[in-house]
């Protein structure tokens, strides 16, 4: 039990919170057919972090988050510039911008890697979910002990506050968001400010991606933005129900993925564990696959239903 408290409780909580946060935002990304903006933003977090490290010379969380946030905004602006002024199709514009920025990040990293810095591409991709250890968590009593609670890894508090911010944003802007997702022209005509809400949504995506990035790496972020929401989309035609489904899927894949990664190899007789972040993202993909095969609303509306 104390093992669980010490080693698994915090990573599990962080994974579930981040998974649910990303899934919440993902619902709107999927509805707006902007899923890949999450992909682009989580790729460019790398150059942002590297540049902020080169500027400040230290791996402080605040500077890293700031750097990644700035690079996310720069990316969105650049994509828009290339799309507008170059008259390039939006997905191609996205491809040009995020791959170039990612290349810049890798180059800076490798350049600096020679001087022996703890920062590498793999870490950025897989995250370090397993290293979030709560040393004071020796038993159930620690949950109510303020001294032990103070020893919680800071990532948990950060993930929780970002999750809270996302929920607040969604609750405050729900009307505008929903209108803008389904009918931007109508939204503009009733002064729901679709452009502004769009920008806010992208900003929230960036914030969530960055908070998640630090704790769990970037792949899980992309998976959590898209897979649970896409799977939920195949389950229902109502937005509220869809959000509920996506949260369920995110939570289930986080918990199951973490458990499978930690104990799965042991059940098979291997004395090792695999990447928890990778396993969680894989499971979310499996859930989506199942939804694609069996989801009650998987067909396009209006299309002939196959038997």
């Amino acid at each position: 039990m104390s093992d669980f408290m010490m080693f698994s409780l915090v990573p599990l909580a962080v994974a579930v919170i981040i998974g649910m946060t990303c899934a919440l935002l993902g619902n709107f990304l999927v509805l707006r057919r902007q899923s890949l903006i999450g992909d682009a933003i989580s790729h460019v977090a790398l150059p942002g972090i590297v540049v902020s490290f080169l500027l400040t010379g230290a791996l402080s969380s605040l500077a890293m988050m700031l750097g990644a946030g700035v690079s996310a905004l720069v990316t969105v602006v650049l994509i828009e510039l290339v799309r507008r002024f170059g008259r390039v199709e939006s997905s191609a514009a996205m491809g040009v911008v995020f791959t170039s920025l990612f290349a810049l990040g890798v180059l800076l990293l490798e350049w600096h890697g020679a001087t022996g810095v703890h920062l590498d591409v793999e870490h950025a991709l897989y995250g370090n979910l397993e290293s979030l250890i709560w040393f004071e968590g020796t038993g159930l009593a620690a949950l109510v002990d303020p001294q032990a609670l103070a020893g919680l890894p800071p990532q948990l508090a950060r993930a929780a506050s970002v999750g809270l911010a996302v929920v607040v944003f969604l609750v405050m802007c729900r009307r505008q968001l929903i209108l803008g997702s389904f009918d931007p022209d109508f939204a503009a005509s009733v002064r729901a400010r679709p452009a502004l809400v769009d920008l806010l949504l992208v900003t929230m995506v960036a914030v969530a991606a960055i908070a998640a990035f630090e704790a769990v790496g970037s792949i899980i972020v992309i998976a959590m933005f898209i897979c649970p929401a896409a799977a939920a989309r195949l389950m229902t035609n109502r937005l509220a129900t869809q959000i509920a489904w996506s949260l369920t899927f995110a939570a289930v894949s986080s918990v199951l993925g973490y458990v499978l990664a930690g104990y799965g190899p042991g059940w098979l007789g291997f004395n090792a564990s695999v990447s928890a972040a990778g396993m969680i993202a894989t499971l979310s993909g499996v859930i989506l696959l199942l939804a694609c095969l069996f989801g009650p609303e998987r067909h396009r509306s209006g299309a002939a239903r196959e038997a």
Partner: peptide, 23 residues
């Protein structure tokens, strides 16, 4: 075959395949 757009399909495939590769 499903109602999901190509962007969601691309994102889902790339992230879950890559994640499995990481595992």
């Amino acid at each position: 075959r499903t109602r999901l757009g190509e962007d969601a399909a691309i994102g889902a495939v790339l992230s879950s395949f890559f994640a499995f590769g990481v595992v």
